[in-house]
Amino acid sequence: MIELRGIRRDYGNFSLTADLQIDERELLTLFGESGSGKTTILRLIAGFERPDSGQIFVGGREVTRLPPERRQIGYVFQDYTLFPHLSVGQNIAYGLRVQKLPSEARMRRVRELLDLTELAGFEDRAVAMLSGGEQQRVALARALAPSPKALLLDEPFSAIDTERRGSLRRHLLNVQRTLQIPTVFVTHSRTEALYLSDRLVIMRDGAIVESGVPRDIYERPTTLYAARFTGSANTFTHEKLKRLPAHWLDGPVPAERAADQGAPIAVLRPEKFEFTNTGQSEPEGGCLEGQIRHVGYFGSYCLYIVETELGELEVQEEPGCSVGQTVRLCCPAGSIHLLG
């Protein structure tokens, strides 16, 4: 388990605060825009930076003042930082050598990791000869070889082709599930954040703004920032909400929010909307009518921009409609989520 208790780190023009717990088998993702402090949290846990105040615990032991080499935490950098003068096998064995493991045991462990990361047979290759994905797996194997108490990954997939990322993500999940090691993963890819995390922590301006299971954050975000960062969202002010069927909302608007003039207080994911045939009678509870302004084609679905009396709305629906067409928008009860 990793715990950050009352952490503060001040950089003059930027300051970070964090209270965070990462459970024994959890894969936690730090997610947010660049400069929000995600990597700083990793560096604090790893010991590359020291907090100004607060405490850090790893596996029940306080490590706040320990140098990185005594923390037993695996770290994988964005560009892998494989040692250029060592072969694949020597890179993986680096941490084991430091531990002064006898060569027999060391070789066994290296082979174990080569198998785990599907790199068997690569042992003697020069690291410069590897593809990006292979380098990434070597870096992972190297970090895991000394059996660390936690694993930290700083955007490990950002330098990999999009089509290769899928298999690497699955691979990472397999490894993490096999070893059951607390893992913190930094990314600004929405797909990675939603797909990989047991828990998602959203950061902004050096602070944690939201934390939870990806599905909860996606469907019931507390802040507009989290809503927008995890996916497309139609937003509504109280003014606009009043002109929509009341049962579309997932709850009554609290009085204090109702007073909030002009600020969005509710969100609706584009895929909640559905088109209903304009020829049919209006569904119970009413619907919105509008005209398609733009069609964005994404293969299995389209994103339609629909001009309505409430302004432009984003709708995710099956391909088939075209610009200029008049459509009716409906959504199931409770689809619009009230923030906060």
């Binding site: 790893a46 010991g47 080499e69 037993q72 950098f77 560009d79 430091v98 970090a143 660390p148």
Partner: peptide, 17 residues
């Protein structure tokens, strides 16, 4: 770059090593 040294330290290597 510094991150190579940081990687080494996270693997348990002391500065002299």
């Amino acid at each position: 770059p510094t991150r190579y040294l940081e990687t080494g330290r996270s693997l348990g290597a002391r500065p002299l090593h």
